[in-house]
Structure formats: structure tokens, C-alpha cells
């Protein structure tokens, strides 16, 4: 799938594959939460119904051109990241951008959203964005440190090569096994990256009226949902590629995706929400020193 016709077909098909996986994951997550709360829960493809409903709204409210462009940037940026993250059988674009590139293009959708939300002129939205940006100093910094350590150990910053190195010796060479401190620290960060409880300070429906989504209705919210669903897949895949050895085939890929998401959603279902500064303090007290220790161990072993 990395050359010729197969590549072109895959490039065109991949967004749909990713979106479908996202729908299944999203539905699964809601179903799982419902079961934990002893409810029946919605349909397995409930996110699909939501997206269709939102996209087919008759009247849509915009606050200006930046608001519109922001939505395109949001979906575009997420699809961009999606192409650069290698999945089984498709790693064509990873030769044009390593994880440092991915780390930065992951910031394109939030930037787009931030600009759009800014133009909606709603303080709830601005507060949500301010919180989201502050949270970066918590989880993103820690996650990047785990990546730095892992990349330094293996002498490459390319995500595809890191994945290949881990696949060389089965489970024993998985990042989570060889560098458990980094792997576990990154797991905390994953919870923050996916904006799930206890780090769900950005949306916080009961405090700031869903923050960035406050003024989003109709197709605007629909596009945010599409982005969210694809983003689920992308973020889980990033963690998987860095610490769970990626996947060699699609069956393994989907299995790992759902297993990882089960963990994230289970934590989400039983926790309350931290305050922003508490969440930051948590990241600086537990996962960050943990990752730092992991990196120091790598340095000692290296020397």
C-alpha cells in the first residue's frame, strides 16, 4: 500500500476508514460508560447518527469568516496528522515527517479551534481554550519527554522506525516493557491528551458550558464531532506506535485500539474532574518525575 495505485486508493480511502473506526470507538466508549453505570446505553454507532443530524441542520449560525475557516483547519489538521502517523501497511508519509513533525501538526487542530472559538466572542469558549493551552504544559510536556527519552535510546526520531524497532522481538521489545516508566507516564498523558476525566477541564459542561463548543451548533459542532472521532483513532495510534509496538496487521491494530480505549474510558467513567491547577500539579508531581527518571535511567545505561 506504499506505492502505485494501491497508495492512491489508500490515500483516498483512509479518511473514511479512520472515520468509521472513530465512530465504532466512540460508540463503544459510550456503550462502555453506560454499562459501567448499569445502563443500556446508546446504539453502537450513535456518533454516526449525531454527526448526520448535526451536518443536516437547516440553519447554521456563524460568527465570522475565521469561525468558518477554523472548522476547516480543525478537520484538515486532524486528517493531516492521521496521514503522518504510520498504521499497519501504510507508512508512506512517515518518510516526509518524523514524530517531531507529528508533535507540531497535532497542534494545528487546537490552534484552528482556538481561533474559531475566539471569534465566537463567548467568554466560556475563551476560558475553555485558556484551560486547554495550560493543560499542554501538563500532559504534552510529559508526553514529549517520554518520546525524547525513547527516541534518544533508539537513535531515531522517526515514528515508523521506532515502531519497527519494537516489532523486532515481539512483546519483549515493546516500549512499555523495555521502558515501563516512560510507558506508564505516557499513559497518564494519553488520558490528558484525549481530554477524558479526570483531566476533562476543557469541556467541563457544568462549569463553563462545554467551553469551546459553547457557540458551536449545526454543522460547526458536526465538524467538531468528526474531528473528535478521527482524533480518537490518531491519538490512540500514536501511543500504540510509541509504546505498544504498533501493529503488524489490521486485526492486531483494531484489537489494540479497543483495548487501549477500554482502559481510557474505564478511568473516565469512575473519576470526577480535577481543577486546572490541580491537574497541572498532578502531572508535574507524578508522571513528569516518572518520565524524567526513565530518561535518566536511559542516560545511565547509555553511558
Amino acid at each position: 500500500m506504499n506505492s502505485g495505485i494501491g497508495l492512491i486508493v489508500w490515500i483516498i480511502a483512509y479518511p473514511f476508514v479512520s472515520f468509521s473506526l472513530g465512530v465504532l470507538l466512540g460508540g463503544y466508549g459510550r456503550k462502555l460508560t453506560a454499562r459501567i453505570q448499569r445502563r443500556v446505553g446508546p446504539s453502537w454507532i450513535q456518533p454516526f447518527f449525531d454527526v448526520v443530524k448535526l451536518m443536516s441542520k437547516k440553519t447554521n449560525v456563524s460568527h465570522g469568516y475565521m469561525h468558518d475557516v477554523a472548522m476547516m483547519m480543525l478537520v484538515g489538521g486532524t486528517l493531516l496528522t492521521m496521514y503522518f502517523v504510520p498504521v499497519p501497511g501504510f507508512h508512506y508519509f512517515s518518510q516526509f515527517g518524523d514524530y517531531i513533525v507529528i508533535m507540531y501538526i497535532l497542534l494545528v487542530p487546537p490552534l484552528g479551534m482556538a481561533l474559531g472559538v475566539g471569534q465566537t466572542a463567548n467568554p466560556n469558549g475563551s476560558i475553555g481554550i485558556a484551560r486547554a493551552l495550560q493543560m499542554l504544559a501538563g500532559y504534552e510536556v510529559t508526553f514529549v519527554l517520554t518520546f525524547i527519552g525513547f527516541a534518544m535510546k533508539n537513535g531515531t526520531t522517526s515514528m515508523y522506525e521506532l515502531m519497527m524497532i519494537q516489532q523486532s522481538g515481539g512483546v519483549a521489545t515493546w516500549g512499555l516493557v523495555t521502558n515501563p516508566l516512560l510507558g506508564v507516564a505516557a499513559l497518564f498523558c494519553l488520558q490528558g491528551m484525549m481530554n477524558e476525566k479526570p483531566f476533562e477541564v476543557v469541556i467541563a459542561p457544568h462549569e463553563i458550558a462545554t467551553g469551546p463548543m459553547t457557540e458551536m451548533g449545526g454543522k460547526y459542532l458536526g465538524m467538531m464531532f468528526i474531528q473528535h472521532l478521527i482524533n480518537l483513532v490518531v491519538e490512540l495510534t500514536i501511543y500504540m506506535n510509541l509504546f505498544l509496538g504498533g501493529a503488524t496487521n489490521w486485526f492486531e491494530y483494531v484489537a489494540k485500539l479497543f483495548a487501549l480505549f477500554t482502559l481510557v474510558m474505564s478511568v473516565n467513567a469512575v473519576y470526577g474532574r480535577f481543577r486546572t491547577d490541580s491537574a497541572l500539579r498532578f502531572f508535574w508531581k507524578l508522571p513528569l518525575p516518572m518520565a524524567a527518571l526513565g530518561v535518566i535511567l536511559i542516560m545511565i545505561n547509555g553511558i
Binding site: K57, T59, D68, M72, G76, L79, K219, I226
Partner: peptide, 17 residues
């Protein structure tokens, strides 16, 4: 991908500022 975003945006209904 931005163009894809734009296509999705224009698939949705009219919008008013």
C-alpha cells in the same frame, strides 16, 4: 486535507453570520 475540511463544511447547510 484543508480542502477536504472545506468540502465537508460546504456539504453542511447554509450559514448566516
Amino acid at each position: 486535507t484543508f480542502a477536504v475540511g472545506a468540502i465537508i463544511f460546504f456539504i453542511g447547510g447554509k450559514r448566516r453570520i
